[in-house]
């Protein structure tokens, strides 16, 4: 465990809690893509099946359970408790365009052809694109609430910190997880455009709105 990894995990957790608090306090989930949140719940579900087969550390187990709970609670808030405020008309990204190629790829490129390992690979590939419905929604409506942009910032920061973690682990432990690294780079690239808008607009006190 290095400082980049722990900061990455904290940043990931902070992003999820921020989103939950935003929805809970405003009793409103307008502007949040329910599809992205379903994808994240699917990511954690397929990745953390090893909770039952493999013990890494108490930290690892506790964080996995918290991530799962947060993901499902968020989905429940959007499609259950506050569904009247859910802006489904702007959440129109076609999930099959992501799920079909990613399912195919996880069968083709994996570390071993076993059900758990294919599901793990699927979750890694899926996480790298899971934010696309959210970014698509923002580009469609042309704006995002400031708190939503903070959520996206911490989610992107988590990915960037994991890249630093992998560089660190490569040099100190000779650890190199090719599938995770390639997907992580792809995922981080998706946030670059958003990072630019975040720094040039949101941090200067302006609302994020697209021209």
């Amino acid at each position: 465990m290095n400082v980049f990894r722990i900061l990455g995990d904290v940043s990931h957790l902070l992003a999820m809690i921020l989103l939950l608090l935003k929805i809970w306090r405003s009793k409103c989930c307008t502007g949040i893509s329910g599809k992205s949140q379903i994808l994240f719940a699917l990511v954690f579900t397929t990745r953390y099946l090893d909770l039952f087969t493999n013990f890494v550390s108490l930290y690892n187990t506790v964080m996995k359970v918290i991530f799962l709970l947060c993901a499902y609670l968020t989905v429940y808030m959007i499609y259950g408790k506050f569904r009247k405020t859910f802006d489904s008309e702007n959440d129109t990204f076609r999930l099959e365009f992501l799920l079909v190629p990613i399912t195919g790829l996880s069968f083709l490129e994996n570390y071993s052809f076993t059900p758990l390992e294919i599901l793990w690979t699927f979750s890694i590939y899926l996480e790298s694109v899971a934010i696309l419905p959210q970014l698509f929604m923002i580009s469609k409506t042309g704006e995002a609430e400031t708190i939503t942009t903070h959520y996206l910032f911490f989610l992107g920061l988590y990915r960037a910190l994991y890249l630093a973690n992998w560089i660190w682990r490569y040099h100190t432990e000779n650890f190199y997880d090719q599938i995770a690294v390639v997907s992580g780079v792809v995922q981080t690239i998706f946030y670059c455009d958003f990072f630019y808008l975040y720094v040039t607009k949101v941090l200067k006190g302006k609302k994020l709105s697209l021209p």
Binding site: R47, N54, V56, N60, W120, D177, Q178, I179, A180
Partner: peptide, 10 residues
């Protein structure tokens, strides 16, 4: 590809 199981990251 090198196997990296069990996975120790989140």
């Amino acid at each position: 590809l090198v196997a990296k199981t069990p996975h120790d990251e989140l």
